[in-house]
Nucleic acid binder design. Structure first.
Length: 582
RNA sequence: GUCCCGGUAGCUCAGUCGGAUAGAGCAACGGCCUUCUAAGCCGUCGGUCGGGGGUUCGAAUCCCUCCCGGGACACCA
């Protein structure tokens, strides 16, 4: 099924080609009307076109409108201002389209005509450490991107590139052995977290320990039995912890998506040798580096990418190169999306540049750093505890539930205490995720419990409530959402509120299509908020169960059902589950 | 010092490829429940779009420059 915008674009492009056969690359520039008095959609090409061919914009618009003639899609085309074409969609078209959506479980969201293999790299927590707020945004944003691309029919491979290798594990394992705490069978992630901190402290002050820790890294790399056993134990405990957090957060990452740094370990030597052999890398001050253009260090010297330390060890850049190579060559990636914070922008720019220079990535493969800003507290400083520590996701989730429960008890006394607990955990997580997704991801975002858990404004509770309210109407009429959808009532547009809602419902496919390209989840959030507000206005003005005629009742039930499904599907793409009452 | 990202209403944020009179929410104030969840709706108030130049029929959006804030910049990840 094609989207409304695409239908209009196609018609206008054809008319443009007929009106101006010599110009073949003109875009009709179709968009939603900015103001209600400008119709439903508008075409803005005439001004741009007029400049190119040196004619009056109004004349260009008129010539194209003549070519367009009449159509079932619109019942009015008006040229306004300098040359805007205002499009009023016909009620018949709206009704037909809505009817199609009602019988389509994809709500008109098209499957990609050119599905790609897309690797989405997100979350990336560290083994032997608790997941904390530093992992939250990547997990939430990455999961949404994976869900959207997946729904569009792309072959999505989720990759959790966990930090499970490197000097810190030598340090931790050595400390565990020295303090006779190497038994990992019954240990909790919080204990490992504490041991890690102790080990780090000792490492910084105790030279002898630091030396032994470094030797332990060599032992780990050399497959030493005792060391490897402990390491495996650490990984196992961490996986359990990740799964626990992901389950609570509703993040679609499991064991099979974990491919940590250790996985690429035995590819690094070959990779650096290949770079050296092809004369792309050279030894500088003992380290192996790849020279790049356009990167300057703080002393104005050219900045190369370091791929092997002077002590022979490898760096995360080396691992990232190996991972990208693996994803392209073995996983067959057409597109690789890295969901990490904005501070790593230069790192990825350099890694991408080396991949390109080495010829490991063809022009058909797109590499994208989907970056995001930091989480800030109310003081506009990084969001941490009072003592300056990272807040664990476990405690963050606990607080989200508690706060949601408090609001629920406050607002609705009809809920049983077990219902409150179940609902609160869902609503708390929804609020947490939605607050993160609703601002443009590149900007830093200010974390505020009060704002995210509020039931007013552009928040998850507001959207969930709109959904619940629709179900409540159905319940009052002794119907379920499923029954209303299956009944497929004939939709008729009889007033402005119904029309406004209809136009909004038909927009969802375009929003998702754009999201798949731009990977900006806040656009979907803004759409869902607009949809919920539009429904609330409809709800105020248009009685559903008490509509004047049975036909009107069926039509409004169908509009309500489409709204409920759109909200549910939209939220699902954001990784948020709806609730049936609240 | 070089580069990257931000700066829009008191606060938090939208603003799509350069399009029409810059929009929401919160806060403040005023209305609307014998009728499907008032967790809602309607209204009022609120702007030199960081400053200054430029390009254009048209600039929050593009270019230049300056100011402010954040970040990155070789052997950590």
């Amino acid at each position: 099924m094609d989207t409304v915008k695409n239908i209009l674009s196609t018609s206008f492009s054809l008319a443009l080609a007929r009106a101006y056969p010599t110009i073949c690359d003109a875009d009709a520039m179709i968009q939603l009307a900015k103001q209600p008095q400008f119709g439903d959609y508008q075409a803005n090409f005439a001004m741009v076109m007029a400049k190119r061919i040196k004619q009056a914009p109004y004349d260009v618009a008129r010539r194209v409108v003549q070519q367009l003639g009449t159509s079932d899609v619109w019942d009015k085309l008006e040229i306004a201002g300098p040359g805007f074409i205002n499009i009023s969609l016909s009620d018949a078209f709206l009704q037909t389209r809505l009817q199609l959506l009602l019988s389509d479980n994809r709500l008109g969201i098209p499957l990609s005509t050119s599905p790609q293999v897309v690797v989405v790299d997100y979350s990336g927590a560290n083994v032997a450490k608790e997941m904390h707020v530093g992992h939250l945004r990547s997990s939430i944003i990455g999961d949404t991107i994976a869900r959207v691309l997946d729904f569009q029919g792309h072959r999505v491979t989720r990759q959790n590139h966990v930090g499970d290798w490197g000097t810190q594990f030598g340090m931790l394992i050595e400390y565990m052995i020295q303090t006779k705490q190497q038994d990992t069978a019954t240990r909790q992630i919080t204990e490992l977290n504490a041991l890690y901190k102790q080990a780090k402290q000792k490492f910084d002050v105790d030279e002898d320990f630091a030396t032994r820790a470094r030797a332990r890294v060599v032992a780990l790399q050399g497959d030493d039995k005792q060391t490897t056993e402990i390491w495996k134990g650490l990984v196992a405990i961490s996986k359990e912890h990740f799964n626990d957090i992901f389950t609570r957060l509703g993040i679609g990452l499991r064991d099979e998506h974990i491919r940590g740094e250790s996985f690429y370990n035995d590819r690094l030597a070959d990779l650096t040798q290949e770079l050296e052999h092809d004369a792309l890398a050279r030894v500088d001050q003992g380290a192996l580096v790849v020279e790049l253009e356009g990167f300057i260090d703080r002393d104005d010297n050219p900045l190369p990418l370091l791929v092997r330390k002077s002590d022979g060890g490898y760096l995360y850049a080396t691992t990232d190169l190996a991972a990208a190579k693996f994803r392209i060559e073995v996983l067959g990636a057409d597109r690789i999306v890295y969901v990490t914070d904005a501070r790593q922008a230069q790192h990825f720019a350099m890694v991408f540049a080396v991949l390109d220079k080495a010829g490991w990535v063809s022009e058909q493969v797109s590499l994208e750093h989907v970056s995001f800003g930091s989480m800030l507290g109310k003081d506009k400083k990084p969001f941490k505890t009072r003592s300056g520590e990272m807040i664990s996701l476990a405690s963050l989730l606990d607080e989200a539930s508690e706060r949601a429960a408090r609001v629920l008890r406050d607002k609705n006394s009809d809920l049983s205490s077990t219902e409150v607990v179940t609902l609160a955990s869902n609503i708390g997580v929804a609020a947490l995720k939605y607050a993160d997704l609703k601002t443009e991801r590149i900007k830093d975002y200010m974390f505020s419990w009060e704002r995210m858990i509020a039931f007013e404004g552009n928040t998850a509770p507001y959207l969930l409530n709109a959904y619940v309210r629709i179900l409540s109407v159905f319940r009052k009429g002794c119907l379920t959402l499923q029954e209303v959808v299956e009944a497929g009532g004939r939709i008729v547009i009889t007033n402005g509120r119904e029309r406004e809602l209809a136009i909004r419902l038909l927009e969802l496919p375009d929003v998702v299509e754009t999201l798949g390209k731009e990977l900006l989840p806040h656009r979907l959030c803004n759409y869902l908020y607009a949809l919920a507000s539009t429904y609330h206005r409809f709800y105020e003005a248009c009685p559903v169960l008490l509509a004047d005629t049975i036909e009107l009742q069926h039509s409004r039930l169908a509009l309500s059902a489409l709204t409920a499904q759109s909200l549910k599907q939209g939220l699902e793409l954001l990784g948020i589950h709806t609730v049936d009452k609240m």
